[in-house]
């Protein structure tokens, strides 16, 4: 209740400011918001047209000047995750399911035995900062091919161990999705190594997604399940990702 009162008092103070008139745009159901949000389709179409299958810029070892700044969840506290972290993720399994002919359950050993890709890339957070790090992992396309996607599959959905929020209806675990254009891009990897060491817990151990041509929030950490689907309506509130359900763009190329 106190928070609610603070919020009301805060709103009253803000009402004095000039730009309050556009605050209705924060309401995701308002016509104003929908008008402004119409840019997303145009942005995606335009970017896809000019980018094609080109690679994100890669950097040199000399460009790695600091550790990778962790953001969002940095230490999931679920019992299952804690138990696995305590034993070096020995019994971790990545599940690949959904619209596939051969569902997979892969251990870290299975994943590291597959051909890997190492890339030094720049991580751009939606907040505005960037950080350069070296990522090692297995191309997502390689893992998806093992599972043999069906023709109907259009999106890869990532389910994660980190509960980023606790609501009345229970814990909300991080979820994210990308389309198969990005899923099969050569730089899209499931990373298990960072800056020459195993992926730290703060950065998403044991496995995180790297989608180098989009913003940081697309790169789900603590991934345990990849599901191929033909639409995103059933996921969260239907916008395709945890942050898309909270007003951010699903396509985060800008």
């Amino acid at each position: 209740m106190l928070d609610r009162r603070k919020l009301l008092l805060g709103s009253a103070a803000l009402a004095l400011s000039g730009c309050k008139v556009f605050d209705s745009a924060t309401d995701r159901d308002s016509a104003l918001r929908n008008l402004f949000a119409s840019h997303e389709g145009l942005t995606r179409a335009a970017q896809r047209a000019v980018i094609g299958d080109r690679l994100a810029p890669e950097f040199s070892e000399a460009d790695i000047r600091q550790g990778q700044r962790p953001n969002g969840s940095v230490n999931p506290d679920g019992a299952e995750y804690r138990r696995m972290a305590g034993t070096g993720f020995r019994d971790y399994r990545l599940t690949v399911t959904g619209l596939v002919d051969r569902p997979q359950s892969l251990s870290l050993a299975n994943l590291t035995a597959l051909p890997s890709r190492t890339q030094i890339t720049r991580h751009d957070c939606v907040e505005g900062w960037s950080c350069i790090a070296k990522w090692q992992g297995v191309p997502l396309g390689t893992v998806l091919k093992l599972a043999q996607p069906r023709l109907a599959a259009r999106y890869a959905v990532f389910q994660c161990f980190d509960a980023i929020e606790r609501s009345l209806s229970g814990e909300v675990f991080y979820y994210e999705s990308i389309d198969l254009i990005d899923a099969f891009h050569p730089q899209t990897i499931l990373a298990y190594g960072m800056n020459g060491a195993p992926l730290p817990v703060a950065n998403g151990a044991p496995l995180r997604l790297r989608v180098e041509r989009q913003l940081g929030y697309k790169m789900a950490k603590y991934v345990h399940t990849i599901e191929l689907v033909d639409n995103l309506a059933a996921l969260g509130s239907g916008n395709g990702s945890y942050w898309a359900d909270r007003g951010y763009e699903w396509y985060a190329g800008i």
């Binding site: 803000l14 400011s17 000039g18 730009c19 745009a25 145009l42 942005t43 951010y248």
Partner: peptide, 24 residues
């Protein structure tokens, strides 16, 4: 300060949506 931002309250998502709309 609030008087210099749209929306007046902190909302990165809304700021981005309006910014890119007017960028176009």
């Amino acid at each position: 300060l609030a008087a210099l931002t749209i929306p007046s309250k902190p909302s990165l998502a809304t700021g981005r949506v309006i910014h890119f709309f007017f960028a176009w």
